[in-house]
Simulated scan of single mutants.
Amino acid sequence: MSEQQAPALNFTGERPSRLAAVGQWQVHALAADNAIAALNRQLRNAAKDADMQWDLSGIDALDHFGAQILWNAWGRRRPRHLVLAPQHEDTFVRIEQAGMLTLPVRSRPHWFSPATLLRVQRDIAGHLLSFVMLIGQLVLDFGRFARWPLRGPWKEISSNIYHIGYQALGITALVGFLIGVVLSFLSAQQLHTFGGDIYLVNILGMSVIRELGPLLAAILVAGRSGSAITAQLGVMRVTEELDAMLVMGMSHGFRLIMPKVLALSISMPLLVVWTDAVALAGGMVAAKVELGLSVSYFLQALPDAVPLANYWIGIGKGIVFGALIALVACHFGLRIKPNTESLGQGTTLSVVTSITVVILADAVFAILFKGVGFY
């Protein structure tokens, strides 16, 4: 690039001061030899003089990039004394008009505003309606399965029992054992203070078999298997597999929803029994270490300390919790839109809702059976 083509500024210090821009003020010329930094310093110094005479008539070529550099140096407004070549006038007019455009600011309504409350009300109503329709379809599918059991989705049920139940044995055993150890250790310290060591079996047995075992297993399954069910149905929505099933005449409820509900209703009671046993084993270990209670005494005192009704209440909780987790997970999985953002949001919302529903159902059990299972 020759010297005549390079962008430059010619400054005359006589009063009134005059600054003339010459050369090619285009992006390729301004990017060469780090010319932008030197020109910006000169332009900023010149812009401090309000009476500066700006002469841009000597510019050979000007693009939007070069005009923007001058515009920024002027403080985004034209100087009082400016001489422009006629062919460059349109460039500065477009820059000036673009600076005058302002995007409308959309104010975010408060959560208590009528519009927000109406939208939340509609969302809740939509979820309730979809959930009721899902339950109704599930009842019809159960009726169809009872009439023609040989045509039922036995492979899907077996596969879900394996993935939901068998593969969850490890995590439920680990967490159950730790909970039993912690609960037994803390209870033993308090009971030993008042000389009530023998009542550790009562506290540990009642809390684990009636409450902690079913609730702990349900929360773990909701986070592990509930999210997997929602993600599976969501991916099928994104990849249009659900639409393909409808085209082939295959029912979503009979092939996808019902097997998962059945599998969770079968697996959850078994997981509750497994979690109870491992948690009590952890409690026995802690009781042996902390209070010196033998394992044989613990096993002999447990049937008398915990009535059998509590065991059946825990089993019943497992069945109900499993069905609720499956229904909530399938509900949110079917409502996922065919995009990845909705998939992530739906999976998160499914887990949170499942755990909340399980805790609410546990509270209902506590109210309904408040007089059952006690001597």
Results as ranks from 00 to 15, higher is better:
A31Q: 09
G371P: 09
A6D: 01
S159N: 11
L212H: 09
W148E: 07
T91P: 01
L271K: 03
A29E: 04
P114N: 00
V201G: 06
H252F: 01
L200C: 10
D90F: 06
G344S: 00
L19Y: 06
S342M: 09
W312L: 15
V105W: 13
L360A: 10
K317F: 13
G152S: 14
G75T: 08
A85F: 05
G283H: 03
T340D: 11
L256A: 01
F332G: 00
W312G: 11
S113E: 15
S113G: 14
A326W: 00
L324H: 03
I336D: 05
D123Y: 08
P149I: 12
P79I: 13
L82D: 06
R335F: 01
W148T: 09
I367M: 00
N34L: 02
P79Y: 11
Q300M: 09
D141T: 05
P259Y: 00
A47R: 11
G126S: 07
S294K: 08
I203Y: 09
A286H: 11
L9V: 07
A46G: 11
A361V: 10
D60A: 12
L264Y: 05
Q68E: 04
F298Q: 02
S107F: 07
A46F: 13
F321V: 10
V289L: 15
T356S: 14
V201D: 03
L174A: 10
A217Q: 01
K317P: 12
V295R: 06
M250T: 12
Q167N: 07
M206C: 08
D276I: 00
H252N: 05
E96K: 03
W274F: 15
L19A: 13
A38E: 12
W274G: 07
T116W: 08
Y311V: 13
V357S: 14
L302C: 11
G75L: 09
G226P: 07
P104Y: 00
L242V: 12
I171G: 07
K370N: 09
Y199F: 15
N160T: 00
G23D: 09
Q232Y: 04
P153S: 03
N45A: 08
L174W: 04
Q97P: 04
A323D: 04
V273E: 05
F185W: 15
N310T: 08
L271F: 05
A363V: 01
V372T: 12
L327A: 00
F185Y: 15
V175P: 01
L140F: 13
I179R: 06
D49F: 08
